[in-house]
């Protein structure tokens, strides 16, 4: 119990955010209307993706420092789960965009940033696939992971702020969070935390599977 309490916490937070996300009160806004509830599902995907990417980065740096193959497995599995969250965030965003902006794929710098991010992490897995020696694979893919992360960050955080964007907080739109009242925040923050915990849980299962496979193969 002492070790896996956080899994109950994650499941509980998620259940809470889903139930109250659909039933709770929301402010009436033009255009947004009831679709404002998507904020409990769409935005946490990006938070989880960023959290998982940062974890992957941390383990890549650790691998370069210590050369322990476990760190490489951690880094690759965190990256794999972050791609899944990226795709989910993309799909929920498309659905939301269809009802508010009237287009499944509007031309928006944040969308481009995410598409590029998915390309970068796909390239990371292609690079991993092209080595047989695990030490070499670990070192080179860790270098690429750090390098790609550093060039991905300006794309997400700086470029959308320089150009016009439909997303809040960019191009003169009100900053993130100012649209939400206290009742929405009470559901939004647990949802973010819940999804991050679930993402970590999925990643930890994959890591354990990989480690068991490694031991069997040896």
């Amino acid at each position: 119990m002492r070790k896996y309490w956080w899994k109950f916490l994650g499941a509980g937070l998620l259940l809470f955010s889903v139930i109250f996300g659909f039933l709770g009160e929301t402010p009436r806004r033009e255009i947004l209307n009831e679709t404002i509830r998507m904020v409990y599902f769409h935005v946490p995907m990006w938070f989880s993706m960023m959290a998982l990417m940062i974890s992957s980065l941390v383990y890549s740096v650790r691998y370069l420092q210590k050369g322990n193959i476990r760190d490489d497995i951690y880094a690759s599995q965190f990256a794999a789960v972050s791609i899944i969250f990226g795709i989910l965030g993309f799909l929920t965003g498309m659905l939301w965009g269809n009802f508010t902006w009237g287009d499944w794929l509007p031309k928006d710098p944040k969308l481009i940033a995410v598409e590029v991010g998915l390309l970068i992490y796909s390239a990371y897995f292609i690079l991993r696939g092209s080595f047989d020696d695990e030490q070499r694979r670990g070192r080179l893919s860790a270098i690429y992971n750090i390098f790609a992360f550093a060039s991905f960050m300006p794309l997400v955080w700086i470029l959308p702020r320089l150009t016009d964007s439909l997303h809040p907080g960019n191009g003169g739109n009100p900053a993130f969070g100012s649209d939400m009242d206290i009742k929405m925040r009470m559901i939004f923050y647990p949802a973010v935390l819940g999804w991050i915990i679930i993402g970590t849980w999925i990643a930890s299962l994959r890591i354990r599977l990989k480690l068991i496979n490694e031991t069997i193969n040896e």
Binding site: V116, I120, A123, I126, L127, R136, L140, A148, S151
Partner: peptide, 20 residues
């Protein structure tokens, strides 16, 4: 360091160079 270096380089560099 890979076998198919020109193909891998193209895949690795395109997304990284996109913001630039």
């Amino acid at each position: 360091k890979t076998d198919n270096s020109s193909g891998v380089l193209a895949v690795l560099s395109m997304p990284v160079l996109l913001p630039l």
